[in-house]
Amino acid sequence: MLNRVKDDAATLAAEAAAFLRDHFRQDSIDLALVLGSGWASGADHLGEPLGEIDLEKVPGFSKPVVSGHGGRLLLVRTSGGRVAAIFTGRTHYYEGHGTAPVVHGVRTAASWGAHTLVLTNGCGGLNPEWPPGTVVLLRDHINLTGDTPITGPTFVDLSEAYSPRLRTVASQVDPSLPEGVYVQFRGPQYETPAEVRMAGILGGDLVGMSTALETIAAREAGLEVLGLSLVTNAAAGLSAGNLSHAEVLQAGRDAGPRLAELLASIVGAL
Score class of each variant (00 low, 15 high):
residue 52 E to I: 10
residue 174 D to F: 08
residue 241 G to N: 15
residue 102 V to H: 03
residue 1 M to R: 05
residue 40 A to D: 15
residue 162 Y to P: 04
residue 149 P to E: 03
residue 229 S to F: 09
residue 173 V to M: 04
residue 264 A to C: 02
residue 183 V to S: 01
residue 92 H to R: 03
residue 182 Y to L: 05
residue 18 A to W: 07
residue 103 V to L: 05
residue 132 P to F: 07
residue 75 L to Q: 00
residue 178 P to H: 05
residue 30 D to N: 12
residue 264 A to M: 06
residue 16 A to G: 04
residue 232 T to Q: 09
residue 204 G to A: 03
residue 254 D to R: 11
residue 251 A to K: 06
residue 253 R to S: 12
residue 67 S to F: 03
residue 90 R to D: 04
residue 20 L to F: 07
residue 78 T to R: 02
residue 26 Q to V: 11
residue 118 V to Q: 10
residue 97 H to M: 05
residue 119 L to R: 09
residue 107 R to K: 12
residue 137 L to S: 06
residue 136 V to S: 01
residue 261 E to D: 10
residue 68 G to I: 10
residue 233 N to A: 11
residue 67 S to Y: 03
residue 172 Q to G: 05
residue 104 H to P: 04
residue 185 F to L: 09
residue 222 G to F: 12
residue 245 H to F: 12
residue 206 L to E: 09
residue 99 T to W: 03
residue 8 D to A: 11
residue 9 A to Y: 00
residue 21 R to I: 09
residue 214 E to V: 06
residue 185 F to S: 02
residue 16 A to P: 11
residue 117 L to P: 11
residue 37 S to G: 10
residue 41 S to N: 15
residue 78 T to H: 02
residue 239 S to D: 15
residue 27 D to R: 15
residue 252 G to W: 13
residue 83 V to M: 01
residue 227 G to S: 12
residue 21 R to C: 08
residue 38 G to M: 10
residue 251 A to C: 07
residue 11 T to A: 13
residue 221 A to I: 14
residue 176 S to E: 13
residue 144 L to R: 02
residue 170 A to Y: 04
residue 187 G to M: 02
residue 100 A to H: 06
residue 38 G to C: 08
residue 166 L to S: 02
residue 173 V to A: 04
residue 177 L to V: 08
residue 142 I to M: 01
residue 60 G to A: 08
residue 224 E to S: 13
residue 219 R to G: 03
residue 146 G to L: 00
residue 28 S to L: 10
residue 73 L to W: 04
residue 206 L to C: 11
residue 101 P to E: 05
residue 251 A to H: 06
residue 100 A to D: 13
residue 253 R to L: 15
residue 40 A to K: 15
residue 126 L to W: 07
residue 94 Y to E: 01
residue 144 L to S: 03
residue 53 I to K: 10
residue 262 L to N: 05
residue 115 H to M: 10
residue 207 V to A: 06
residue 112 W to K: 09
residue 48 E to H: 15
residue 205 D to R: 07
residue 250 Q to Y: 08
residue 77 R to E: 06
residue 245 H to K: 09
residue 208 G to R: 04
residue 216 I to E: 15
residue 269 A to Y: 00
residue 176 S to P: 08
residue 122 G to V: 08
residue 257 P to W: 07
residue 127 N to E: 14
residue 192 T to A: 06
residue 56 E to N: 11
residue 62 S to L: 12
residue 200 G to V: 11
residue 153 P to T: 01
residue 114 A to H: 12
residue 72 R to G: 01
residue 68 G to L: 05
residue 153 P to A: 02
residue 161 A to P: 02
residue 110 A to K: 14
residue 157 D to A: 00
residue 231 V to N: 13
residue 51 G to M: 14
residue 190 Y to D: 02
residue 235 A to Q: 07
residue 237 G to Q: 13
residue 254 D to K: 09
residue 186 R to F: 05
residue 60 G to S: 08
residue 125 G to T: 09
residue 214 E to G: 06
residue 202 L to M: 14
residue 28 S to V: 13
residue 33 L to Q: 13
residue 54 D to G: 13
residue 31 L to A: 15
residue 172 Q to A: 07
residue 15 E to I: 04
residue 164 P to K: 01
residue 264 A to I: 08
residue 148 T to Y: 03
residue 54 D to M: 09
residue 269 A to C: 01
residue 119 L to H: 14
residue 150 I to A: 00
